[in-house]
Design a binder for these strands. Structure first.
Lengths: 208, 208
DNA sequence: GGGCCTTGACTAAGCGCTTGCTTACCTCCG
DNA sequence: CGGAGGTAAGCAAGCGCTTAGTCAAGGCCC
């Protein structure tokens, strides 16, 4: 899932013009931020007139809400799938971090909006996204707590360590540049090693 | 340095109204973002009329530029001071991370502007801040590279690992809430341990 | 010391422009 | 021919910033 095309999230959105609006909004919000983006800019990126936005969405904020909601749901689904795939806490943490980081690199534009435009959301939409975020944090925290209980990890405080591990992935959205020399998969592998080290788990790939 | 009052950075700014504008702008930019903040809002926080802003600053962007510049300079000074204080690479890394993280917690409003409003800066101001950022990254990268050379650290790629270590601190600015249960100093100590683990250095405080 | 001018800090009013969004209308396809 | 998709034109509100002016504090000359 983390290695699909950046726009694959919107493949099911119909009609096509409505999808183009979403893609254009993601690009614009990620580049300049929600408040600095005009509805005219979004419409122009979709190749339509300013008024066309309101044929498909009731407001600019509704566009942001849909992007944030879809993005958060995708991130949560990815984390829960990784947790389910792993057979022990250390492997689970490695899989979660590798996929979470790779997703934030591949979908860095969507991730930018997801991570940094929470405050621009209307109240109800923000509450929905915040709830999904808590489930993501909870899944990682539980993985670390399991590892400590099974004595395959050491962490003074699973909640705080889980938050630090997630910070690593979230911050990728801020700096990632697809023109740079980091592939999402390689970055995910490196960060999985770093996370394993953070919880005192033995090396696997190495990070030598 | 990282444990001073959040507003201590502006203590030297005169006259007083000019300083109140800066503090108000930091608060507003941190809460809502640069583009969502109006000049009327900043002036109101300083207890002055909208036009008073232009008595002290040529533009809204100039206010942002001063905040970004001062903030970046403080962060660089803090990193360089920590590097100078440490006597070996591992201690240096611990000191840098502890202070960098504590600073991002204590000054989370300034740090928010510094880290997330780079794109809103005019070109020349952005170039200045970007140059300071590179020196911060360079200092951490050199510390990790020194540690690997001295065989007291293991890291596959000092540049990427340094970036990950800094991500930990930068992301603190995003989520830190002074009403929460994390003191800047305790957070710095925890993250220093996590960073030491990331580079394969033996524990000190423990993180058990 | 009294009159006079300069200076720095500040404001009321408002200009020109851009914003999110609406209205009235058009077009094309099943 | 009805409804979905689209547009040209424009409205009200809010934006960054300017203008023209007030006012108190301080210097200065006779």
């Amino acid at each position: 899932m983390p290695h699909t095309s950046p726009d694959a999230l919107w493949a099911a959105v119909e009609p096509e013009a409505s999808r183009r609006m979403l893609v254009g909004a993601v690009d614009a919000f990620a580049e300049r931020g929600y408040h600095a983006t005009t509805t005219r800019d979004i419409a122009a990126r979709a190749g339509l007139s300013p008024a066309a936005l309101y044929v498909h969405y009731p407001s600019k904020a509704a566009l942001l809400a849909q992007i944030s909601s879809t993005g958060h749901e995708a991130a949560l689904a990815l984390v829960e799938a990784a947790v389910a795939r792993g057979t022990d806490p250390v492997e689970r943490l490695r899989l979660v971090v590798a996929d979470f980081v790779a997703w934030h690199a591949t979908h860095h534009r969507i991730a930018r909006v997801v991570q940094y435009e929470l405050g621009a959301l209307p109240d109800d939409a923000r509450a929905h996204s915040v709830a999904l975020r808590r489930r993501i944090e909870g899944a990682v925290e539980a993985t670390v707590a399991d590892g400590v209980r099974a004595e395959v990890m050491t962490a003074p405080d699973p909640r705080r360590v889980a938050r630090a591990v997630l910070s690593l992935g979230i911050d990728v959205a801020r700096w990632y540049d697809p023109a740079g020399r980091d592939s999402p998969a390689a970055l995910g592998a490196l960060y999985a090693d770093l996370a394993a080290r953070m919880v005192g788990a033995a090396p696997e790939g190495g990070t030598q």
